[in-house]
Amino acid sequence: MTRARIICIGNPYQPGDWVGPAVYAALRREAIDPDIGLIDGGLQGLNLLTLMENVDNVVFADTFISDGAPGSGIPQVLREPFAGDPRLSFDHAGGLAYLLQAAPLVVDRLPRIAVVGMDAGAGRHRVGELARLCLSVARERHHAA
């Protein structure tokens, strides 16, 4: 069984949604642990539920929209995102939120989940740092599993 998956979310052809695809491209050039799967999740939304099965932990890499909140320019980790959050969003920013709220309802053995990302305005020079953070979170949870 794959112990961890890093699922990169976003559309490489859409300005402002580039962070996840850039992390995917960066990690493809790295030697990743054999039991960590790297997935180009694109815009697949609910279609990614299958990839949350038979795995111990899942790390999503995505663009954060933080409206200039303090610290938004640096890579961040959200643990247990949307747990118990009753809000629903269906706009462009809603796909991952919907997925993460649906997952506990239909995935039999829910993996531990983290979302790692940064604001699109943070700049591409921070992609390497973000990719390493994704790997670190995947490994950390892997070893804790």
């Binding site: 300005p15 949604d17 815009l43 995505d62 929209i65 991952l96």
Partner: peptide, 21 residues
Amino acid sequence: LVCTVHAFDRRGRTGGLRIGA
């Protein structure tokens, strides 16, 4: 509309996960 429109959002927001205030 994802397929149909020929990317900018008038609010300047085009994707990703919304966090913070």
